[in-house]
Design a binder for these strands. Structure first.
Lengths: 124, 124, 124, 124
DNA sequence: GTGGTCTAGACCACC
DNA sequence: GTGGTCTAGACCACT
């Protein structure tokens, strides 16, 4: 399904989270689709099941998947729908945030540097 | 106290809000200090009192000032104290936001462009 | 098709929305079935088309129907399929909500009272 | 500070989360206050630090505390402010949720039973 | 010292 | 089999 990148600065569970978000946004995963079980994916990626558990729990908390004990985890109904609307809202939030950081003396260069770093993390 | 900039893209109430935040963060205004009354500031800046009202209301909602009926508005106790924490939190929020926008296919360049624009707005 | 209840506390568009949901959940309406056009239903119920429009728009936003311009509105494919998952999710949301309200000092009796009221509203 | 209840059906990390929420809502903890470190609280409660970590992370995700690596965890600025407004909003969400569950065939008795259970969990 | 991540392995309830 | 919780212990980066 995908590969982990150990030279990526993001922790493993974040890589997993982000990957599933991409799969959902891209349409590769649709609402209601089953995602691999915690143990299954753990053995596929050769990591500890707890790490998958952590990723799945956060995805659930953010409304992307829904885990049903003894049944499995599934892409949430409404996961896609919600986030089509969300990009514009996120931009607005970003704008407000940057405004406020600027008020507090934060310089443009510092912010851009931070952003560059985030994008570097997933490259190599 | 300060001057409005009509060639700034920010609406007047935002300029006023941002200016007070800067005064508080820079230490020019301390906790407990009285800020000008709505009418007073409105006549100083030669603008409509409603505009000041809107700015003050949002400053209060964000915890920077507190209005005491029949007495005036004052810089909130704790407005400064919480700053270090607030900036940390804002950076974390920023990081999460950028991560998510990246997952949704937003490119680095688009985000940086947006930020450059925000910083331009207040310059001239 | 159905009748509106003017002594019901719910606004008309909510009654229409709820009714369509019931029809879908009960199996009376299947995926792909055409629902009456806005004007058609409006004249059947002798109410303003805007009311129907509002109900349909929300049903579409929630993924129950989808409108095809110049063709009409249809029950969404997957509307039923996702039900089991949706109910599970709603129960989880309910549980989290009640937990939080409890933390905030809300008493059991107040919550149950609220629920009793909701169920009364649709009866008569 | 407080005691865990092993006959409570809630997992330990939930008890810890709920307890901190109560402390914040009741005013016992104010914005900016430091909360015990992960290890400190773990030894106080005689449980594994990972369990505290889990509780703190969720509290942070929900905006109640803010954890700064190498510094400690603090009650978020805005934690209180946000939640005074929230109770009314939660009631609205509850109402909408119950409406929808009713549409899907869920009976009043089932819902009330669920709520009774939640409140039972923390009693003994 | 702080928070954060990860592992290995245990146990539970549910179906 | 499934998800969920908890423990014990390791390591990291940061201050």
């Amino acid at each position: 399904m995908f590969t982990l990148n150990y030279s990526d600065h993001r922790p493993l569970y974040r890589q997993i989270k982000d990957h599933f978000k991409e799969l959902i946004f891209s349409g590769a995963l649709n609402e209601g689709d089953k995602v691999p079980s915690v143990r299954e994916l753990a053995s596929m990626l050769a990591i500890n099941p707890n790490t998958i558990q952590k990723a799945y729990k956060e995805l659930e908390a953010e409304g992307f998947i829904s885990s049903v004990p003894a049944k499995g985890s599934f892409v949430s109904p409404g996961a896609l729908q919600k986030d089509a609307l969300k990009l514009e809202e996120m931009k607005k939030t970003l704008r407000r945030l940057i405004y406020d950081m600027r008020c507090m003396g934060e310089k443009k260069e510092g912010i851009i540097e931070e952003i560059e770093e985030i994008f570097k993390e997933g490259e190599k």
